[in-house]
Simulated assay, not measured.
Amino acid sequence: MIKEIIASLDDLDKVVTYLDSILPPHAIVFLRGDLAAGKTTLTQAIAKAKGIEGEVTSPTFSLQQCYGMEGGSMLYHYDLYRLEHEEFMRLGLFEEFEKEGWHMVEWGSDALKSFLEGVGYNVATIEIEPNENSRTYRIDA
């Protein structure tokens, strides 16, 4: 089932609250949308809601950022722009998905998503589409 939420930047808590209600403590979430659609902004809102202090930035050059959440869980944020599935596997990043927490994946390929689903992971997808003063979040979880 796909849930659609339209929210402005000030209303991102609606999206985060919905995600909290449907996602388990260990989840892989593919964030889809054009450049500047709001993928990192949504991850920042999730981090803030989870009690993560400090700056949450796109891991464009590091591929992955890790943040501790209240209660000991972790938030992982990946930026896989221009990183092919085979290179992702060669770098050993697949093993990171075994770690407890939410894994937010920007620019993840369809091949990676299919692979993860094929080995038993339940992968959620959030399509983000900018509107004039808001964004449409299509959540398939």
Results as ranks from 00 to 15, higher is better:
residue 1 M to V: 02
residue 1 M to I: 02
residue 3 K to I: 01
residue 5 I to N: 04
residue 8 S to C: 08
residue 10 D to Y: 10
residue 13 D to C: 11
residue 14 K to D: 13
residue 21 S to T: 05
residue 21 S to R: 09
residue 23 L to H: 01
residue 24 P to T: 03
residue 26 H to M: 07
residue 28 I to Y: 00
residue 30 F to T: 12
residue 31 L to H: 03
residue 33 G to D: 08
residue 33 G to C: 01
residue 34 D to A: 07
residue 41 T to D: 05
residue 42 L to P: 01
residue 42 L to I: 04
residue 48 K to F: 09
residue 49 A to N: 10
residue 49 A to I: 06
residue 53 E to F: 11
residue 53 E to R: 09
residue 54 G to T: 09
residue 54 G to I: 04
residue 58 S to G: 07
residue 59 P to L: 09
residue 61 F to C: 12
residue 62 S to I: 11
residue 62 S to G: 11
residue 64 Q to T: 14
residue 64 Q to R: 13
residue 67 Y to F: 12
residue 69 M to R: 02
residue 70 E to M: 14
residue 71 G to L: 01
residue 71 G to E: 06
residue 72 G to N: 07
residue 73 S to E: 15
residue 75 L to F: 07
residue 75 L to D: 01
residue 76 Y to L: 10
residue 80 L to T: 00
residue 83 L to S: 13
residue 85 H to R: 03
residue 85 H to E: 15
residue 86 E to R: 13
residue 86 E to S: 11
residue 87 E to M: 07
residue 89 M to S: 14
residue 89 M to Y: 12
residue 89 M to R: 13
residue 95 E to Y: 09
residue 96 E to R: 01
residue 96 E to P: 05
residue 96 E to Y: 09
residue 97 F to D: 08
residue 97 F to A: 14
residue 98 E to T: 12
residue 99 K to M: 15
residue 99 K to H: 13
residue 99 K to T: 15
residue 103 H to A: 07
residue 104 M to C: 06
residue 105 V to I: 03
residue 112 L to P: 06
residue 114 S to F: 14
residue 116 L to T: 07
residue 117 E to R: 09
residue 118 G to A: 05
residue 121 Y to G: 13
residue 124 A to F: 01
residue 126 I to K: 03
residue 126 I to G: 04
residue 126 I to R: 00
residue 127 E to T: 07
residue 127 E to N: 14
residue 128 I to L: 05
residue 138 R to Y: 06
residue 140 D to T: 10
residue 141 A to S: 11
residue 141 A to W: 08
